[in-house]
Design a binder for these strands. Structure first.
Lengths: 215, 215
DNA sequence: TATATTTGTTAGTCTATTCTAACTATTTAA
DNA sequence: TTAAATAGTTAGAATAGACTAACAAATATA
């Protein structure tokens, strides 16, 4: 069985590979808060296990086997988050740290049961897709709120970022997935956006709007 | 934070200390399936952390601090077992390995929520007491079925042993906690016991009867 | 293009946890 | 009460995963 350390590396590498397919050592080191040499030696190990393609001084490439492995860990993480929110009454800002630990539990039965009790959800509480049992991950075809025009009415579907601070900010503005948002105005100078939803009228920064995924 | 390894040692030591208060190295080694020298070095470490009293060649004594720490781990384990059975539909023979992993999760909130959702249970699915948040463990005043006399009617309350094999054996005989058992006969030669319950008539070995705790 | 900056690598060390082999103390039993 | 058996200990080594210091390659910039 892979160690928790290995699983954490794989997950980070997978997440970084989503956009570019290629990953660099420094990014992994920052995400995991470990030193470059630590990453370097682990990367060699992962390559030896067939999860990565590694060549000195070259960007890393995750293999199909690595992608598959990582998807299963992310599946466990996201199912857990969904379970914690839906069945145990946690808020979406409380579940990350717990899921970070539960994702390493070795028991297919445990996660299958969660999946079943949840009715086979497609998304986690932040709108991120839950990989299926074969490791396939649905790609989301959402736009950023930041790219919408005044007059448009869209629905908040997912988040491009899920830090505690951001989730708490959204809570404070009563912004949740499923909320219908109307773009009222877009300030050209700083791209601040005035929006209306659920009886709220708020001005959101471009930073925030670029993290809100809508359709 | 204590490592999983430390937590596992503490738990085993605590369990062995329940009867005798004193624990020996060999017992720990067997329970954890590690070598004697491994136990010896960990024991010194635990003593250094104030969880044990250690003197060369002397039986170990767990300290109040150690007992407290161990109780919290056992609390997490047993709450988890109860949750898995009551809320997720697992059988009592399926939960040990999962709980063994979840007991190391660091999140008081997670276990408090389980506790709440379960209605603050006092016992796990095998009838063992769940330590409270202060580390206090109710002592069970149950007798062994093996000590009952023909003619007695008792209720199965807990198990003195919870191995997979034993639980599956009990399943096969439809023996569950709460079942009322009447002792029909006790064979003096081998102490086999004939019992009746729920429309069943069975002959149980003395080994089995000594693991069935009743009141 | 030459140099400065960034990124990645190697060598060597440290800690936690495990092990085997060899030895010593304690307990049991003849 | 001494020998045999059991239990506990020490020394030394292995592995996983992390680190720092020193160095090398790749990239960006003047």
């Amino acid at each position: 069985m892979n160690s928790q350390s290995i699983e954490n590396y794989l997950k980070v590498i997978f997440n970084q590979a989503i956009s570019t397919d290629e990953v660099n050592t420094t990014g992994i080191a920052q995400a995991l808060e470990v030193s470059l040499p630590s990453v370097n030696s682990m990367v060699k190990k992962l390559a030896g296990m067939g999860f990565l393609e590694y060549e000195k001084y070259r960007p890393l490439k995750i293999t199909e086997k690595g992608r598959q492995m990582a998807a299963m860990i992310i599946r466990k993480h996201r199912l857990t988050e969904m379970y914690l929110v839906e069945k145990m009454g946690f808020g979406w800002e409380e579940v990350h740290d717990i899921a970070e630990q539960l994702e390493h539990v070795q028991s297919p039965l445990f996660f299958d049961r969660m999946d079943e009790l949840l009715g086979y959800p497609k998304r986690d509480p932040h709108g991120s897709p839950i990989p299926n049992k074969k490791g396939h991950i649905a790609t989301l075809e959402y736009r950023m709120l930041a790219d919408c025009q005044p007059g448009e009415k869209v629905v908040l579907k997912a988040l491009g970022h899920t830090s505690d601070a951001f989730l708490k900010y959204l809570n404070s503005k009563n912004l949740a997935l499923g909320v219908e948002v109307e773009v009222i105005a877009l300030e050209m100078y700083d791209r601040n956006m005035t929006v209306v939803y659920d009886g709220h009228r708020e001005v959101l920064s471009s930073l925030v709007c670029s993290k809100l995924l809508v359709s």
